[in-house]
Amino acid sequence: MYYEVIWVGRGGQGAVTASRILAKALNREKIWAQAIVFFGAERRGAPVYAYNRISDQPIKYHHFVTDADVIVIFEPSLIKLTNVLSRARDNATVIINSAGRSEDMDSELHKYRLAVVDATSIALQLNLLVAGIPVINTAMIGAFAKAMGFPLIDSVKEVIKEAWPGKMGELNAQASEKAYRETRILENIKSVS
């Protein structure tokens, strides 16, 4: 088992936290995971990357993930802005936050196994907002668990509740579970397109 993951979001959307929560959830299942971040001169709104390496063995690599087996995109506009799909391996899974509008579905996406979740609507339904911005990162972890089949969604929820005790953790755990249930996997999109 060896996976490399790229998370791409905008500053403030919590991509870094998502990669760390994922690694902690995997650790509960005795799966070895690194969570790597690139810190630069980020501001709220600028593209931000976080990475995971996931394996059944301890990992000794210490560089950033260059090409990935899984790419998690926090909003469709980041596809063109960052050109992140150029870093997808063949047979990569791409997980995207989208309400499913046709203009969100970049033509490049159809090359990959695709998982779609409307994380923004989930956050709004749960009234999960920080400084007026919907919190989507925990929903995206739920989408990851569904798309990849690991970690267990219960592990994700436990780690989230530990990270934010009280109501905030409760809401975020709900968001991840709701996303887990609502994520649609488009396995055969290649043949459709």
Partner: peptide
């Protein structure tokens, strides 16, 4: 190492 270890999480 700064960031390489300081800000990278691992078990």
């Amino acid at each position: 190492g700064g960031f390489v270890l300081s800000h990278t999480a691992m078990p």
